[in-house]
Design a protein around this nucleic acid. Structure first.
Lengths: 235, 235
DNA sequence: ATCGCAATAAGAATCGATAGTTAGCTCAGG
DNA sequence: CCTGAGCTAACTATCGATTCTTATTGCGAT
């Protein structure tokens, strides 16, 4: 039997592992997630795998078709557009509240996590451009921290969930394919600065732009979406 | 074995049944949901029960404590406050979009579902004041329809989920205990009217007031919350 | 009497086996 | 050559048994 990790339950461990695998792009959007295969990979029983898949399906990271099993959520143009609109509205709301209410402790935290982000390379060493899992995690923490002082854990939950869904689109962006150029580090720097100066309006504006730029990258940088935009079949 | 209902899978059926049972207040907030008992009640195996509980936990209608099983989400003052704030912000956003964008078809639907709501009695016949499940469902449909034209299914999902969480607070309100008085039918009527006239600002204002009034009712009308407010232990 | 430990019982998590479903293939009939 | 009923293989959903965890109770030591 598989030994327990950091979580209290076996399924909790497998849950975080599979979730990370999906968010890190180790399995393709739309690809089927066969319980039997996962059972072997994680060395747990089928029931545990099903529980994990069920949880991920409830969060829409995975889709469940009755009697046809589970697959990683597919990437589509329409979904991306809705997701971006939702994030702009809701995360926009949250950052305004957060920047307005944030106290000294929050400021310190923003500063700290932004510094950490600046010091973490996006790509792993080596010839292949493979994303640094550490960067993914710090990047998520940076965005979460910006919103954190909004003081409403329900809103924060919603934002975290939307951010996760968007992670898939960030991940499957092929570098070099997109015609859009950007300076992500600068966007983050400006965002942090606006937050620290408690300029809620500016912070919201920068966050919205940041999210929209990511969308524009994805629309041209993800082959399936670029094709879809050109009127062809999605992959 | 339990026979299949409307859903494609057995667990899908049990899911809706248990969910309804919780939303209709057939099991008390905080009460434990023992797999063995539910297994017998629904005549399905323990695995199906666990899958259902896992899904409900993911939506926060149920809480899962590792190695201590599941229970219906408890009602607390702090949670209610956050929920109300979140609903005002997010549903407010959605209704503004919806009212601005709604077309003729949407108007007709609002009119129809509001008429249906007016014609459905809140309480079932009889001496006991027991809520009419039909009203609960039409009421949910009315609120969903108001937001529907916002055109963003992700935002609608979030709103539906928040509305469900709030259902618990509506349900456990004991009539007569609250000092707050209201005319719910009028609130709904005004809301529908503002929507039909495409007055987005007014519709948002009315919706926010509607949600806040519900909160005020709950704070005095739910014994556990009233006690909590008075500085005592929550039930 | 109170504390701490061990035994126990109740219940939760995990397992592998069985039943049920769907998609794909084969082959007879048109 | 096409169609579709029936078969088959692959996979999904459901089941009940087993293993593991936690809370409780009883008992002896302080």
């Amino acid at each position: 039997m598989a030994r327990r990790g950091t979580s209290k339950t076996l399924s909790g461990d497998v849950y975080s592992q599979l979730r990370d695998a999906i968010l890190l792009g180790q399995v393709r959007p739309g690809e089927r997630l066969k319980p039997t295969a996962l059972r072997e990979e994680y060395d747990v029983s089928i029931s545990v795998v099903r529980e994990v898949l069920t949880r991920l399906a409830e969060q829409r990271l995975v889709v469940a078709e009755p009697n046809q099993g589970f697959s990683v959520a597919p990437l589509t143009r329409a979904h991306l557009e809705e997701l971006v609109e939702a994030r702009c509205s809701i995360e926009g709301l949250a950052i305004r509240m957060s920047v307005a209410r944030g106290d000294l402790e929050w400021e310190s935290k923003v500063l700290a996590v932004h510094h950490r982000l600046e010091g973490t390379p996006i790509w792993l060493e080596g010839p292949e451009k493979v994303i640094n899992p550490e960067w993914v995690s710090v990047h998520a923490a940076f965005h979460a921290t910006l919103l954190e002082a909004c003081g409403n854990s329900i809103i924060l939950d919603v934002c975290a969930s939307l951010f996760d869904m968007a992670e898939l689109y960030r991940r499957w962006n092929e570098t070099g394919t997109s015609t859009v150029t950007r300076d992500v580090a600068k966007e983050h720097r400006d965002l942090a600065a606006a937050a620290l100066e408690h300029d809620a309006e500016l912070a919201e504006k920068l966050l919205v732009e940041h999210i929209r730029t990511t969308r524009d990258m994805a629309l041209t940088g993800i082959p399936a979406l670029a094709r879809e935009a050109a009127g062809e079949q999605p992959a």
